[in-house]
Design a protein around this nucleic acid. Sequence first.
DNA 1: CATGAATGAGAGTTCATTCAT
DNA 2: AATGAATGAACTCTCATTCAT
Lengths: 194, 194, 194, 194
Amino acid sequence: MATPHHARRSDTRSRIQDVALKLFAEQGYEKTSLREIAERLDVTKAALYYHFKTKEDLLLSISEDLSAPVDELIAWAQGQPRTLATKQEVLRRYSDALWGATDLFRFFQENQATVRDLAIGESFRERITALSELLKEPDSSMTAQVRSLTALFAMHAGMHATQNVEGDPEEKRAAVLEVALDLLAQADADLVTN
Amino acid sequence: MATPHHARRSDTRSRIQDVALKLFAEQGYEKTSLREIAERLDVTKAALYYHFKTKEDLLLSISEDLSAPVDELIAWAQGQPRTLATKQEVLRRYSDALWGATDLFRFFQENQATVRDLAIGESFRERITALSELLKEPDSSMTAQVRSLTALFAMHAGMHATQNVEGDPEEKRAAVLEVALDLLAQADADLVTN
Amino acid sequence: MATPHHARRSDTRSRIQDVALKLFAEQGYEKTSLREIAERLDVTKAALYYHFKTKEDLLLSISEDLSAPVDELIAWAQGQPRTLATKQEVLRRYSDALWGATDLFRFFQENQATVRDLAIGESFRERITALSELLKEPDSSMTAQVRSLTALFAMHAGMHATQNVEGDPEEKRAAVLEVALDLLAQADADLVTN
Amino acid sequence: MATPHHARRSDTRSRIQDVALKLFAEQGYEKTSLREIAERLDVTKAALYYHFKTKEDLLLSISEDLSAPVDELIAWAQGQPRTLATKQEVLRRYSDALWGATDLFRFFQENQATVRDLAIGESFRERITALSELLKEPDSSMTAQVRSLTALFAMHAGMHATQNVEGDPEEKRAAVLEVALDLLAQADADLVTN
DNA sequence: CATGAATGAGAGTTCATTCAT
DNA sequence: AATGAATGAACTCTCATTCAT
């Protein structure tokens, strides 16, 4: 048999995650009902509950799986010297992570109000804070700090805000990264000047 | 009579709008029920329906009242020459508009998924698109375009993303604006160079 | 008009209570669904929620209304001297209270497990404890105390346990009360003897 | 093999019964889900279904095992003369039976509404009826009959109602039995007098 | 002897909305 | 200008039960 039992084992489980993420990203968390997810997969609602304790737990499992790369990035960066080179590398890797899970990060960005008081919101905020602190120098000028933060948020916004710009996605991604890296460099220059 | 009919009429109406916006911004649109709004105001749900046709209509009325300044800004800008000075003025005025209605813009930012398929979403997107097109030059390099867009989105993000930065709000706002203006100037420099 | 507005005001509300108590007593609390109650009344489930916050709250409201006489009895007794005459009067009045709300007390007796961890359980236990303490003397012999308690519980049991005995209800009630009064008298005699 | 098949077979089976009875008694029948029972035993729900056809069947098996002594008692008594001595012996043995399976009888008492329309309810009622008929004389005065019934129900109530009385359990049990025996004797005296 | 995966039915609850008064 | 009463549709979630393996 080509598809042995254990290959199938988590088949339904991950199909649920896939469909759920797609719908959460497209329609929002609240507007996506478990009925809808179940119908798309041609299973019953109860089947979802066999695999996930609650709706929130379903979202949590998706988020944990997909945002692991970001956590690794943070862990790595915290062991590096706080040089411009490190920060630039953080930005580059973050770009990879974001574009590797666009649905999830789109979801986070467009459902902030919802996410805020879900368990998941906490870890999301923590990640952003950790990244912020890796990029900005608390003793630098406020302008420099804002520039660093802008580098970070420009990447989030850049994922979806460039839809009215002509050009292929990879090119856009590169442009966004370039602008972000530049902001970082300027923030660093400020620091040196001061 | 000290309080004529028309003064009273809009009193309740605008109290509803105030409370609704506060709750929409704090908790999100879907998670805020009309029951909750009514309870806060110590009126019945039916009273809300006297003043507004639907929940969505309530949101619409809030948005229209508060985002008028942005529409005026766009109208004004569309009559001006496409110079850097104009663009910078757009950004300055936009900063005023945003900080003049933080709850509303926070709401828009944190409820994008929800807002997307409300009638209001359309006009929101149109405004952003209009502003984008006022700021970026479609024939400039992609990097320059991204820089212009980033100037715009930096202002949105800057409203709430600077909470971990020390300093008073006005100072932060100024710093955000400065960074945005700078991005715009760089985009313009690119254009000249090309 | 024979039935003015305000007479109707609580009409639905108390019709709900009536039907609910009937079904709770007949079938048990858990086995009675709100759907069933609503259907009997030819209203929607949501109508129930207009009048009562939760299923438990519905039960609570019924219990509070119907067990007021018992609370009054307790309050009265606590102001009386701890004589045999008082205790006998307590039993007599309690008999009236029980037979005046048989459905409710049947419900309590047959749904103890359920009631135990509802808010209502607490007040039920408190009432029983208060009555126990009014009837038994903590310093008397254990047998005397058990006799007093038995007087109390005999009345509960007597409401439904006499169905296999021939005779009319009023006669049965009188017999149960007589036996209970007798137990009380014997407990008192013990006390004197000791 | 040290542990033959049949020893193991009934091991799990009776562990299930033990846990189930404990939970049924503590929380009630409806509020105890098969999931919960399975989790406590660290087996799957399906395992329960290997041993018992349905949830009700599980309860039935418990009840049959534990209430065998009562059935034997009834069978024995039905072959004895209807003397006071016999009746007193019935009460004494019934006391043993009750205290030998407190969880089960507590369950019966606190879940009457539930039990009523389970198959088990029938046999429960039959046992009570049989005992009633062994104790009371249908031709005696109503008061005498109520006294006999009270003797019986006092034992049920006595199992849990004496928690607010000081003293050790065995002593309480003895006191309850004494009061019950006394009631029986009084009923018998009535009979003779009439 | 037992599990993993799933189902169908139904539970309690909440929501935006309506309408006669 | 506002209320009281109600609805219909939907929601998340839980349950006892089944069955192939």
